[in-house]
Design a protein around this nucleic acid. Structure first.
Lengths: 147, 147
DNA sequence: ATTTGACCTCAAGTTAACTTGATGGTAAAA
DNA sequence: TTTTACCATCAAGTTAACTTGAGGTCAAAT
């Protein structure tokens, strides 16, 4: 059993953010004590962890709420919920691939500036003959560029 | 040489977005023709590709502009620019790792719902003895949870 | 006994990143 | 020649996800 302040400490979310998530229907089964204060338990922490995960995949709060609503429907929505996670898996993999492409471009830039620094002049690299660009860097560059 | 409409088609950004980027100083060296229309060239497309890459790493437009300003300083800022990209590399790697953790949780959920569907009842999985959860799934679950 | 600190609600404010709308210029097609 | 299709600017509107502020309750410490 945790107070909202303790949960804020654990999750590194602000207290108003937690209240906001609750308002938005993301924390379906939060209890209240006699004074009307929110009382969180471990299942709520799990829910918050899932919310964090889904936000990372790019879902909006509205979309996360839609999933919570699905959960409340019980056994009837098991297939839908499985499909939901299969979709998220696809999305995450796409995101990872995009980030890997971005990483290639970043590494090309690192090589570019390292070489520029070595020669004390950016123009040296900028005007470099394509044949003189190391294959790895060329690959990085191309990868970062296409698609 | 491309018109703003052509660039919108190539980059899949909207025409107003391109104008907005220009306003915000993200497209430093865009030319104009006699009628005052923007004329993009390949270096501008490269710039847009970098912008896309930096946005993916989580940079704001303001932060991207700061980098552009750095570029305009010429050879004096080579070190700073290299450091900038080294930082971005770190950020991207962290993002990829976080996404991989999220993927683990997603896969646990997939196993969870697949098992629930097989037994026609979510309660079967939800109340399952921890010893009966396959090691792989347990690992996924834990990984998704810690940190 | 009152001050402190953590909780509450509700309404309003903020910020980023665009988008939309109003208005107008030029140029090629109908 | 007038309609269509892009281009332009400028101001205002939108949306998401919070954050901030005002005003109030309650329990424990000073």
């Amino acid at each position: 059993m945790y107070t909202i302040g303790q949960v804020a400490n654990i999750t590194k979310l602000s207290v108003p953010t937690l209240r906001y998530y609750d308002e938005q229907g993301l924390l379906a089964n939060i209890k209240r004590n006699e004074q009307g204060n929110r009382v969180f338990d471990d299942s709520d922490l799990e829910a918050l962890n899932l919310i964090d995960c889904l936000k990372r995949t790019g879902l909006t709060i509205k979309e996360i709420r839609d999933f919570i609503i699905l959960c409340k429907k019980g056994n009837d929505s098991l297939h839908e919920r499985l499909d939901f996670f299969l979709m998220q898996e696809k999305t995450i993999n796409e995101k990872i691939n995009q980030l890997k492409k971005s990483l290639s471009l970043i590494k090309f830039k690192e090589w570019y500036y390292q070489t520029a620094i070595e020669h004390g002049d950016e123009a040296y690299v900028a005007n470099m003959n394509e044949a003189d660009i190391p294959d790895v860097q060329k690959r990085n560059y191309i990868k970062g560029h296409t698609k």
